[in-house]
Amino acid sequence: MDRPFDILLGRKTYEIFAGYWQDHKEEGSQLNKAKKYVVSHSLQHLEWSNSVLLKGNDVGK
């Protein structure tokens, strides 16, 4: 995981990852830098940096 990458997450996995890795910036530096695409119908906003919410008509494009 030493190269830049994007990651696709569902709501539950996003909540688990964000709950841990946001507070472990040095250990998870690559995860924190990665663009995170999150698929969810229930989330309204994302607090983890570099996260993009995909919902409604955005899903599947």
Rank of each mutant, 00 (worst) to 15 (best):
I16F: 09
L53I: 09
L31A: 13
Q22G: 05
V52G: 01
R3A: 11
E15N: 06
H41I: 00
D2M: 07
E47H: 12
I7A: 08
E26I: 13
H45N: 10
G60N: 03
L53W: 10
E47Y: 11
P4L: 03
H45L: 03
L31W: 14
V52C: 01
R3G: 06
G60P: 09
P4Q: 08
E47S: 13
E15M: 03
E47P: 04
K35W: 02
D58M: 14
K55A: 06
S42R: 10
L54S: 08
G60V: 06
S51D: 04
Q22K: 12
L8Q: 05
E27R: 14
Y14A: 00
V59H: 07
R11A: 05
I16W: 07
Y20I: 15
L46G: 06
K36M: 02
Q22L: 04
K35V: 09
K12H: 10
S49P: 14
S42V: 03
V39C: 09
D58F: 03
D6R: 10
F17S: 08
L31T: 12
N50F: 00
K61Y: 11
G56I: 00
F17L: 15
L54M: 12
K36D: 00
F17T: 14
H24C: 13
D58A: 13
I7F: 02
Q30D: 14
K35Q: 12
V52F: 11
Y37A: 01
K55G: 11
N50C: 02
V38W: 07
S40G: 03
L54E: 07
W48A: 14
N57V: 09
V59N: 06
H45V: 04
K25I: 12
Q30M: 14
L9R: 04
K25W: 05
L53R: 06
S42L: 06
L8M: 07
E27T: 15
